[in-house]
């Protein structure tokens, strides 16, 4: 058991092709790593790879037969169906618009918040602010989204009570299409911006202080230092946060289910929500065709951003 070097048996070994002999002994020598990885591999295969492959297969089958032992293959029919479905196309554009808006909003405000929090005059308050910002990241979204849903309610929501106290007109919240869309942009921002802020804060602490000192000696004003010294150094953090945000907001789902159910009048019918509602109607073929499209978009964007980022590093 304990011998890690394979004992060479010249006669037997000669019978096997060299490459296989090499691979076989390599595997045997490293059997401990195969044992260590086995549970992880099994879990990844059963709960990751298998569902993904099955999802793609089911997207090529007829929904009524998808769960039977011998499903009927309709090939690209589900894809043709969803791409001729106006609701799907509009949900696709809506999701992309929401993602672009949210990524820009979250990354810029997180950067601004991190810059303010790292300033010397906020040394005492910064830890408490940081905690408050991060709290929505760890608390159950089922609870926080329900609370926000009620906060925006016309009758006893806190939002409209505040607006009335300040003499401002009521905000329709989730009851009108356009307002509902921006309510979700806001609530998703509230839910995620703390994560991006903390990433920026950590990176700000790692900046080279001598560059800032030099700029200060040269008489650069605060805004000049932010633009010309800090932000260029934060480029990798901005890239990482943007990638995370793109993937995050493309998948926006929970907030829709909990706060608006896709309404009113489909104004918040995002891609993943639409796929899920197809799934609830047992329309597995179309649901998984949509999931596959979203999967392809996520992979495509991740590759593009990654490539761009790699190129930018070599400038």
């Amino acid at each position: 058991m304990q011998t890690d070097t394979a004992v060479p048996i010249p006669f037997l070994a000669a019978l096997r092709p060299a490459r296989w002999r090499h691979a076989g002994s390599n595997i045997w020598r490293n059997r401990i790593f195969y044992i260590l990885i086995a549970p992880f591999a099994a879990l990844t295969l059963v709960m990751g790879v298998w569902p993904i492959v099955l999802g793609i297969i089911v997207s090529f089958t007829d929904s009524y037969t998808a769960l039977t032992p011998e499903p009927t293959y309709v090939w690209f029919q589900n894809y043709i169906d969803i791409f001729s479905d106006d609701l799907f196309l509009s949900s696709l554009w809506r999701t992309l618009l929401f993602t672009v808006l949210s990524v820009v909003l979250n990354v810029t405000t997180a950067l601004a918040l991190a810059l303010i929090l790292s300033s010397r005059s906020l040394k005492l308050a910064a830890p408490i602010c940081g905690l408050a910002l991060f709290l929505p990241v760890v608390t159950p979204e089922a609870a926080t989204f329900i609370v926000w849903k009620w906060m925006f309610s016309i009758d006893f929501g806190a939002v409209n009570a505040f607006l009335e106290d300040m003499g401002l007109p009521d905000f329709a919240g989730t009851t009108k299409p356009l307002q509902a869309f921006f309510t979700l942009v806001f609530v998703e921002w509230w839910h995620h911006v703390g994560f991006y802020t903390i990433i920026f804060l950590t990176n700000l602490k790692l900046l080279d202080p001598t560059l800032d000192e030099a700029a200060r000696m040269d008489g650069a004003r605060t805004m000049q230092r932010v633009w010309n010294v800090w932000i260029p150094q934060l480029r990798p953090a901005i890239a990482i946060n943007s990638i995370y945000a793109v993937i995050q907001f493309l998948k926006t789902f929970a907030v829709v289910v909990i706060m608006t159910n896709g309404g009113p009048n489909y104004a918040t019918n995002f891609l993943s929500f639409y796929a899920y509602s197809k799934f609830n109607l047992a329309d597995y073929g179309q649901a998984l065709a949509m999931a596959t499209v979203l999967f392809a978009i996520v992979i495509g964007l991740a590759v593009v951003v990654y490539r761009y980022n790699e190129k930018a590093d070599y400038r």
Binding site: T44, I52, G55, V58, S272, F279, F295
Partner: peptide
């Protein structure tokens, strides 16, 4: 690679094929 793919698949929508599995 399989793990990377699992990470990229929209987590919420992975629930649909996982239901089938």
């Amino acid at each position: 690679f399989g793990f990377l793919m699992t990470m990229m698949y929209p987590a919420m929508l992975l629930v649909i094929p996982v239901y089938l599995v």
